[in-house]
């Protein structure tokens, strides 16, 4: 899922500073699960902003609403009235949600309340880790199901580099060396010989390097007449 975290409160206050009526829009999907932008966080943020603005001598009308998914038009359409009444929309969805609101509501000023961080999973309660870089050309079949693009600090395809020590990356002891993990897993699966092959340079066109990406599925598109 998409992992995000709330921006510093001061930054959020500055972003909504010009507005009187603020609508905090939460998202009920990824950011709810990572406790960054769900209904509860929307309510906490709205209450905090109401109190802070009041103490600041400029009481703002801050309300909150949460949709199931900010990244789909259908859900955004259900809150059209609230969005249109607001001077500013503070989205605490991921960056996709912020842009979806901007696209769906061309006249609305929308600002982000979160920093969208990465694609990952909760390793344990309260801890999220990156797992995928969305490079568009998955190589997990070559690396025992551990992604060096997302998890090696240098995105090496022929790792590990000389900075691998005691299982962690030279960048930071908190980072497990992805190539040590790959090595260990290939070894336990009896497929270490896969590491002896030289992997050629990656084609980054499928990644962001090919420009913004798009997928079209003709079989799923609705016919023109409908």
């Amino acid at each position: 899922m998409i992992i995000a975290e709330q921006k510093p409160f001061e930054e959020i206050k500055n972003l909504i500073e010009p507005a009187q009526r603020v609508l905090v829009v939460g998202c009920g999907t990824c950011v709810t699960v990572c406790f960054a932008g769900g209904a509860r966080e929307a309510a906490i943020l709205a209450a905090s902003l109401r109190m802070a603005s009041k103490l600041n001598g400029d009481p703002k009308e801050v309300t909150d609403v949460t949709v199931q998914r900010q990244c789909e038009w259908e859900y955004l359409d259900t809150i059209a009235e609230q969005i249109n009444e607001a001077d500013i929309v503070l989205s605490i969805g991921c960056g996709i949600g912020v842009q979806a609101i901007a696209e769906r509501y061309p006249k609305t000023w929308v600002v982000p309340g979160l920093n969208t961080a990465f694609l990952g999973l909760p390793a344990e309660q309260g801890v999220w880790v990156e797992r995928c870089a969305a490079c568009g050309d998955c190589i997990l079949g070559l690396t025992a199901g551990i992604c060096p693009i997302a998890r090696c600090s240098k995105s090496l395809l022929n790792g590990p580099c000389g900075g691998s020590q005691d299982g962690h990356c030279e960048v930071n002891e908190e980072i497990p060396c992805a190539w040590q993990l790959i090595y260990d897993r290939l070894q336990s699966l009896g497929k270490l010989e896969m590491l002896y092959e030289i992997r050629p340079p990656k084609n980054w066109r499928t990644s962001r390097d090919g420009g913004p990406r798009k997928i079209v599925r003709p079989d799923l598109r609705l016919s023109e007449e409908e």
Binding site: T32, A39, M51, K54, L55, T66
Partner: peptide, 20 residues
């Protein structure tokens, strides 16, 4: 609490807890 309007605390309309 400087958020109090008068000397006494007052109930203010706030949004409810989300059901989740």
């Amino acid at each position: 609490n400087p958020l109090r309007v008068s000397g006494k605390a007052h109930p203010q309309e706030t949004c409810g807890l989300p059901s989740g």
